[in-house]
Amino acid sequence: MTYDEERNHSGAEWSEHVPVLLAEVLSYLAPRPGGFYLDGTLGLGGHSEAIMDAAQGEASLLGLDRDLATLDKARTRLARFGDRVHLFHSRYSDYEAAMDELGWDLLDGALLDIGVSSMQLDQPERGFSFLADGPLDMRMDPDGDTLPASHIVNKASPERLRMIIGKYGEDPMGGRITNAIIDARAKSPIETTLQLAKIVEMAYPAKWRAQARNHPATRTFQALRMAVNGELDELEAFLGTIVPRLRPGGRVAVISFHSLEDRMVKHTFAAEAKGCICPRQIPVCICNHEARLRIVTKKPVMAGEEELGRNRRASSAKLRVAERL
């Protein structure tokens, strides 16, 4: 989803909304009239609107989002394209069901912009941010069947907590943070974002806190959000099915904000771009594996200085693109 900070105060959230790496996405997807495009992480609809405009409003677009609030705003934003835009309240890993419902077979382009949106971060009641007090929620779909972050923080075993913070957060202080959470919840439940942020902050050694570039709770909050919403499982499911749903020459573009996600995209694209995958000791190919993708971006594409100047949240965005053979 889009990281942007360009909302004005009139209530028109997208009037200054510029999606991350927008020019690059349009350059690689090259939307055209008559094409079929998927925006699996619709957000406020910035990327989708630009895709439709680039195709002169004559493409067909499928947009998915788990958040009903942002989906409603995107529906208003994209209304001018009429019945060429189809929006679904859905996980992006379920895009095939939406395609089948529409009678779509193949795509000319597919886009994911993974993460949490500014709209979600800026609403304390959603519980994504450690900068304002709110319930410890973090669900992309508050109306769905997932449990909030408070459930993990207060109920998960020490082993699971340590795994989540260590693996998803990649935090070298994961063990200390886990111990601090266990100690705190034994006294009273941890129910708010500022409660948790303070616990994590104090788990860091004083010297680390003084020298930290980011708030000590940054990695823990990211890790919990990923666990609550099953984000790595979502990405794995999408990457496992998208290639055969691309038309030859069609492209898939993924913007990620986490090293684990970027690594998964990189390795999947690399595997799909290989021919024979037999072990080296076998002299003649017996696997019959054929390459299905061409890697378009040899290295991840990142935001330039101009974009970073207006949107600091774009600093960790990495775009990778591959094309169906």
Rank of each mutant, 00 (worst) to 15 (best):
Y3W: 13
Y3T: 01
S15A: 15
V18H: 02
V18L: 11
A23W: 04
V25M: 09
S27D: 14
A30T: 14
P31R: 11
D39A: 09
T41R: 06
G45W: 07
G45D: 07
H47N: 09
E49P: 00
D53M: 11
A54L: 11
Q56S: 15
A59T: 12
D67R: 13
R75C: 05
L87E: 01
H89N: 11
S90W: 05
S90N: 11
M99H: 06
E101K: 14
L102P: 01
G109N: 11
G109C: 13
L121C: 06
F128P: 10
L136K: 02
R139F: 10
T146P: 00
L147D: 05
L147E: 13
S150F: 01
A156S: 14
S157L: 08
P158G: 15
P158I: 10
E159N: 06
M163F: 15
G166M: 05
K167N: 09
K167T: 15
D171N: 12
P172R: 15
P172K: 15
G174T: 00
N179E: 15
N179L: 12
I181K: 08
I181S: 07
R185E: 10
P189I: 00
L196R: 05
A206D: 06
K207A: 15
K207G: 00
Q211D: 14
A212Q: 00
N214H: 07
N214D: 05
N214M: 13
H215S: 07
A223M: 03
E231A: 03
E236D: 15
P244K: 11
P244S: 10
V252W: 02
F269K: 08
E272G: 00
C278L: 07
V284H: 11
E290M: 08
K299G: 00
K299E: 04
L308S: 05
L308D: 03
R310M: 06
R310I: 13
R313F: 09
V321L: 13
